[in-house]
């Protein structure tokens, strides 16, 4: 069996092509929500009056891309723009590009603009970045590469662009492989640290990162719950590539993984990060196999084999 066979994908394997629509809409909506959630304190992070002023923060920027401050420095001599004007432009254009991606209007261009702006914004707040931001970049990059605007999009509706099914399975294979690698290495690196194997990391997590401090789990200190939770995390993550690709265990592993992310959101307050990871899992291992959602009529895709469909539904 080759790698694509492992991921149950040949070019003829029937998959529900709504996974691309779901991916585009959910990712763009989540990123817009995340950006909106920062608006009340936006000036405290980006303005000249922020905790770390932009000229100081600019020292840490990656030299591959400019920061917002770098853009301002380059444009101000020619266009006489003030820093707040440049900041406001980013504040408006970025969510507009994301909403355009959500609607599927000039999808690829919108995704490209959103990706570039996101990278510039991240470059301007290096010290404030966490896991969610890395996954935002990954998701937007795939929105540029994948034909996410081929269905249920304004591009499709207004410009009557014909949707091409060819290649959808190839893209799904890449996304699945990437997600499996992410989970495997995330679990493997935890396995290397002895703190995860003896439960100390979970204990530290519920104390240092427990945003819901009213839930006190200290009374469980004599039980092996922290030890089990530590090993549980390692097993769920490391064996994700295996059990999510076995039809008989797929649904169970998906439920376990989603529950795991709900717990992360609940105990660590990483709501956006957890939501993004759930989106990735649902996009790759739930939607494509779920044939009960309506199939797209205008797609000249491969005709599903009834027997294969039944098998996939049973799985």
């Amino acid at each position: 069996m080759n790698a694509r066979g492992f991921f149950h994908l040949s070019d003829q394997t029937p998959v529900n092509k709504l996974w691309l629509v779901f991916f585009r809409c959910s990712v763009s909506a989540l990123i817009v929500l995340n950006f909106a959630s920062m608006q009340a304190d936006f000036n405290d992070i980006f303005s000249a009056n922020s905790y770390i002023p932009p000229d100081i923060n600019n020292v840490l920027r990656s030299h591959l891309l400019p920061s917002i401050y770098g853009v301002y420095r380059s444009l101000s001599p020619t266009f006489h723009l003030s820093y707040p004007t440049v900041l406001l432009t980013f504040r408006i254009v970025y969510p507009v590009a994301l909403l355009s991606l959500f609607a599927g209007l000039f999808t690829r261009i919108s995704a490209g603009i959103a990706l570039l702006l996101q990278l510039v914004i991240l470059n301007s707040m290096d010290l404030y970045c966490y896991g969610f931001d890395a996954f935002t970049t990954i998701a937007l990059f795939y929105c540029v590469i994948f034909p996410v605007g081929a269905e249920f999009s304004l591009d499709n509706y207004v410009f009557k662009r014909s949707a091409k099914a060819a290649g959808n399975n190839q893209f799904l294979w890449v996304l699945r492989a990437h997600i499996c690698i992410i989970y495997f290495f995330s679990g493997f690196e935890k396995l290397l640290g002895y703190n995860w194997r003896n439960g100390e990391s979970i204990w530290k997590m519920v104390h240092g990162y427990n945003v819901l401090s009213f839930i006190d789990l200290d009374f469980l200190y004599k039980t092996p719950i922290f030890f089990i939770a530590g090993w549980g995390t390692i097993i769920v993550e490391m064996f994700y590539p295996l059990f999510i690709n076995i039809p008989k265990t797929r649904k169970a592993w998906l439920i376990v993984t989603i529950s795991f992310h709900v717990m992360i959101a609940f105990f660590m307050g990483l709501y956006f990060f957890s939501a993004m990871m759930i989106i990735f899992s649902v996009t790759t291992y739930y939607i494509p196999f779920n044939m009960r959602v309506p199939q797209l009529s205008n797609t000249p895709g491969p005709i599903p084999n009834t027997k294969e469909l039944e098998l996939t539904n049973a799985a």
Binding site: L119, F141, F185, E189, G193, W196, S201, K204
Partner: peptide
């Protein structure tokens, strides 16, 4: 380097590993 930056693939995925840092 540019490819890794653009695609978000330039770093590993060992979140909170090998240990959880102190707050």
């Amino acid at each position: 380097t540019y490819y890794s930056r653009l695609s978000g693939t330039g770093a590993g995925y060992g979140f909170f590993a090998p240990q959880i840092k102190s707050t």
